[in-house]
Design a protein around this nucleic acid. Structure first.
Lengths: 233, 233
DNA sequence: CGCCTTACGTCAACAGGGTTGACCCAATGT
DNA sequence: ACATTGGGTCAACCCTGTTGACGTAAGGCG
């Protein structure tokens, strides 16, 4: 039966190949595996092989693979937010949070692509939510607004980061083809049918660039405007 | 060997149960299957059973399941944008585009979650880009801004929709666990360590709600503000 | 110091997944 | 009417996650 992981693990038995298993070691090995051989390389059996233990030993540490994926996600969040402290400027702080999360995802693109849209319920995520909502509260938003607006903000950041990560996780061949298509496909369109595209034709190659920062900045602009409106009243 | 599907399919042999297979029929059946029996009901074997044919017959029409998924995605995009025309109000029009894309994704979450991070440079997408950039041009943005801002807008919409779809594509068990966690895990936290979360405690169950519309509205607010700033100059 | 409990690593097995190659029938163009 | 071949079928392969039984050795305790 799957057992809930206790706070302290006592009985440590070396595996057949002499390795001492631990939650951390498993997560790290999983990240390495995904990073080296792609997201589809993460399977219970392969992870067991990489760890030098029987695949089913993992079920002593995680209820199922979903539990493991959540642990991986939380590790990424933790690494990204390590050492971050909110400053006086709430807009700048939220911006840095966004950039950190994005950097964390891009550091493990393939792992992020598979874990990005989950609620981990774990320590690092909870701390990040605490920090983010705290920033919106200092901005003057009432609790209900702070919660809802933080959700809108962080979901946008996470979604964008996940999309970017997924793109970076593509094989280079496909990624380059994606880049080229903005140049090629949109090159010779009928001006009568596509007047607007023809007008901005010269700007289209820039569409291959990331829209992460422009989108975050737009969001922060809107939040700042709403905060100002609150204070005027 | 898997063969590329030709433009016209000639030899039509009725299946053992008398059904005449076709690319369209397979795509439609797949969508129906997902809609009726949940996202995880889409498998080659189940699809074969639903069609009344041998599962491997599908490989005469699609190279692999990925190919099938892309065909499904193309259908979703077409359905979502069918009949849409931009109106006079550019903000309202962009908003409707966003809601349509999202509705299309949510109608077929599993398929959307699988194909969301891919780019299909096909006619429907090109027309959507034409429409969107056209709207920003009528808003008064110069071409370079229109292109960049449209990218920020549509990437946010697509990323959000993909995230929502991915969530809906989760097995019900995990989905419910994600929902519950906002109530359970975040409810009894140490007030000293998590003061902000404690303050907004009563609002947290709402975090399970979608942030799609709040996020889109924030973006549109920022865009409208920038457009106004342009006109003042 | 040595017993007892039990955590946990191991093993075998099952159900379900995608995909392939061989087989063969019948729909089609000539 | 015949030869061609598209395409439906079948058996098989290897992958996957997960479970239950089993036994060994680690650690607490007398």
């Amino acid at each position: 039966m799957t057992t809930r992981v206790p706070q302290e693990r006592r009985r440590r038995r070396p595996t057949r190949s002499g390795v001492l298993l631990s939650e951390d070691l498993i997560v790290e090995t999983a990240l390495r595996l995904i990073g080296e051989h792609g997201p589809e390389a993460l399977s219970v059996r392969r992870l067991g092989a990489a760890l030098g233990c029987d695949p089913t030993a993992l079920y002593r540490y995680f209820h199922d693979t979903d539990d493991l994926v959540l642990a991986i996600a939380d590790r990424i969040i933790g690494d990204a937010m390590a050492g971050f402290t909110a400053g006086d400027d709430w807009v700048a702080s939220l911006r840095e949070m966004a950039l950190r999360v994005r950097a964390g995802y891009l550091a493990h693109p393939r792992a992020a692509a598979m874990a990005a849209h989950r609620v981990t319920r774990r320590r690092n995520e909870i701390r990040a939510v605490e920090t983010g909502i705290g920033l919106l509260l200092t901005a003057g938003f009432p609790p209900a607004d702070a919660a809802r607006l933080y959700l809108a903000f962080i979901d946008t950041v996470l979604s964008h980061a996940a999309t970017e990560a997924a793109f970076h996780a593509l094989p280079p061949q496909q990624r380059q083809a994606d880049h080229r298509s903005w140049r090629d496909v949109y090159q010779d369109l009928d001006p009568a049918s596509y007047p607007s595209l023809t007008l901005v034709r010269r700007e289209l190659p820039a569409m291959a660039d990331s829209s992460f920062e422009p989108a975050v900045d737009l969001l922060l602009e809107a939040l700042a405007a709403r905060a100002r409106a609150l204070k005027r009243r």
